Simulated assay, not measured.
Amino acid sequence: MNGLAYTRMTTSPEATKQLASTLAPYLHEGDVVVLSGDLGAGKTQFVQGVAAGLGVRDQVTSPTFNILLEYPEGRLPLRHFDLYRLEDEAELEDIGYFETIEGDGVSFVEWGEKFPSALPFSYLEISIMLDTDGNRHVRAQSCGDRARQLLFVWANDSKSRLMKAAGGGA
């Protein structure tokens, strides 16, 4: 993956949601955000923060058993995938994955790294790692031109407090 990379540490679930909410104003139709990290690291909390920033009023929950949950009532329709339970890339066809991520909303894909060839040409990758003190280390990295533009404007928002990461290409 090439592109920009930024990091930020958050010290609570609320801080993770706040960080995510600062991304919402910059999202456009067709944007895809791939979320990676261990179980319980805060991927769904991140989506909850974005959803709040988009004006979603419904409670956002993990789509682990549904695989896809949709929230149509915000500024943009929000699609939240959890691919953890899928075993084979062919199953993505069955759940309408490709039509959905190319549709009229913004898609958040947990465990998208399981199927790298199914990722779109441009996406923002958010990886969240939990340390032993309960802090979350959030790393945002762009892949493709649209994701690079998205990450650039988000990182320049003073409320995001993102720091340029080592290892991010220019």
Results as ranks from 00 to 15, higher is better:
Pro63Glu: 07
Asn66Leu: 14
Gln59Phe: 11
Tyr84Asn: 06
Pro63Gln: 11
Leu35His: 08
Val153Ser: 12
Phe152Val: 06
Val47Leu: 06
Leu35Gln: 07
Met1Pro: 09
Leu76Met: 00
Ala41Asp: 11
Pro77Phe: 04
Val56Pro: 11
Met9Lys: 14
Lys43Gln: 09
Lys159Asn: 12
Gln18Trp: 14
Val138Lys: 06
Gly134Ile: 12
Ala52Ser: 15
Leu83Ser: 01
Gly30His: 10
Glu93Ser: 10
Val56Met: 07
Gly53Phe: 12
Arg8Gly: 09
Glu29Val: 05
Phe65Lys: 06
Gly96Tyr: 09
Gln18Met: 08
Ala15Trp: 05
Leu35Lys: 09
Met1Gln: 05
Tyr84Lys: 02
Thr11Lys: 09
Val138Glu: 10
Phe152His: 15
Leu150Cys: 10
His28Met: 04
Ala147Gln: 06
Gly30Val: 04
Leu68Ile: 15
Tyr71Val: 00
Ala155Gln: 05
Gly49Tyr: 06
Tyr71Phe: 02
Leu162His: 07
Gln149Glu: 14
Ser127Met: 00
Glu102Arg: 08
Leu78Thr: 00
Ile67Asn: 01
Leu35Asn: 08
Leu76Glu: 00
Pro63Arg: 09
Tyr123Val: 02
Lys114Val: 04
Phe65Glu: 12
Phe65Gly: 14
Leu4Gly: 03
Met9Asp: 14
Glu110Pro: 03
Gly55Met: 14
Ser12Pro: 07
Gly37His: 04
Leu4Thr: 02
Gly103Cys: 04
Gly42Phe: 10
Asn135Asp: 12
Ala166Cys: 10
Phe81Gly: 01
Phe121Ala: 07
Leu150Ala: 10
Met9Ala: 14
Gly40Tyr: 07
Gly168His: 08
Gly112Ser: 05
